[in-house]
């Protein structure tokens, strides 16, 4: 039985969050996942400067039907060229039941995409099908089997209900992302200012992600001119526990990153917590206190996360 007042020293030294199997220990924060239309050469040439945590080349909704072939070729040429070849990039392929899916997958896996974002992931069975296709392509092009990871986009009532099975369907799944537009359509729901129509889906998807140990992205905020609305939604989903949001406009990146950054005071406390935890570990102590409050593993974990966010984007003003 664990003594809650004297936990093992190891629990005080949880260097990284226990969830997140996509090389979480080495990875930077994953707050912003920005779509870049794969048909747009100019945007592909410049988007990498915006500082998103993850870029997602989009072969699906952003690309007209008659340009699916050229967008696919532009995406793979970008993936194999500087600077994209040295960055973590996901590609949103077309849906598994579309005529574009097979060529999308052949192209982007061979071109070295780190992740494939699968739209309309309604069931674990779809992930199993994707997994099998990825394995076949990886074998054919001598890429390590399993090296292509998956972001499963949850866009329907069935997807929300099956979110846990989807997140656990394959070791390739490193993140699940809630997508709001199709979900609301499927539910017959209407968007509200406070996002109450998404509350169940957000909680369900987030619980599925945490139970499976994968990242979780919130929905796109479509009104790029509504900074106040965007910031309010970010506060909500950050407090719920989302790692970040899917974005469609680079203007939203600094707003999002700022919300996840600690204040200077929060950073200072986080650094005190980590220093105290490391000193306790070195001295073999099982329990510590900082600023008069007992510190345990999850608090050390949160402190390290705050330090990582500050390292990535600095600190925010205390409002």
């Amino acid at each position: 039985m664990t003594d809650v007042l004297n936990p093992p020293a190891a629990t005080l030294d949880a260097a990284q969050p226990a969830w997140g199997k996509y090389d979480q220990a080495a990875a930077p924060p994953h707050r912003s996942a920005l779509f870049v239309p794969a048909s747009n050469a100019a945007m592909l040439a410049t988007a990498w400067v915006y500082g998103a945590d993850l870029y997602m080349f989009d072969l699906e909704d952003a690309v007209a039907l008659r340009e699916k072939d050229s967008a696919r070729l532009l995406a793979i040429n970008a993936l194999t060229s500087y600077p994209w070849r040295d960055m973590a990039v996901a590609v949103r392929v077309n849906g598994i039941d579309t005529p574009f899916f097979a060529d999308d997958l052949q192209a982007v896996v061979r071109a070295g995409a780190d992740m494939v974002r699968l739209p309309m992931t309604d069931s674990a069975e779809l992930v199993h099908r994707l997994d099998a296709e990825l394995t076949a392509i990886e074998r054919a092009c001598s890429r390590p089997v399993g090296s292509t990871k998956v972001i499963a986009a949850i866009e329907s009532a069935a997807g929300v209900v099956n979110a846990s099975a989807i997140a656990l369907a394959s070791p390739r799944v490193v993140a699940i992302a809630l997508a709001g537009f199709d979900y609301l359509l499927d539910m017959g729901a209407e968007p509200t200012q406070d996002g109450s129509e998404l509350f169940y889906a957000r909680c369900a998807v987030l619980h599925a992600a945490r139970a499976a140990g994968v990242w979780c992205y919130d929905v796109v905020w479509g009104d790029v001119d509504d900074e106040a609305g965007f910031r309010a939604e970010v506060e909500l989903v950050k407090h719920l526990g989302f790692d970040g949001k899917t974005l469609v406009n680079p203007r939203q990146i600094p707003w999002l990153h700022e919300a996840y950054s600690p204040t200077a005071a929060e950073l200072a406390r986080a650094e005190r917590v980590v220093r105290a935890a490391e000193a306790a570990r070195d001295r073999g102590l099982g329990v510590i206190a900082v600023d008069g409050k007992m510190v345990d593993g999850p608090i050390v974990q949160a402190a390290r996360r705050a330090i990582a966010y500050a390292a990535a984007s600095g600190v925010r003003e205390d409002r």
Binding site: A41, A45, D69, S70, L73, L74, I76, N77, A78, S81
Partner: peptide, 11 residues
């Protein structure tokens, strides 16, 4: 850029 040229020729 070079990769965009390649992609457009290929397409």
């Amino acid at each position: 850029l070079d990769y965009a040229l390649r992609a457009r020729v290929e397409a």
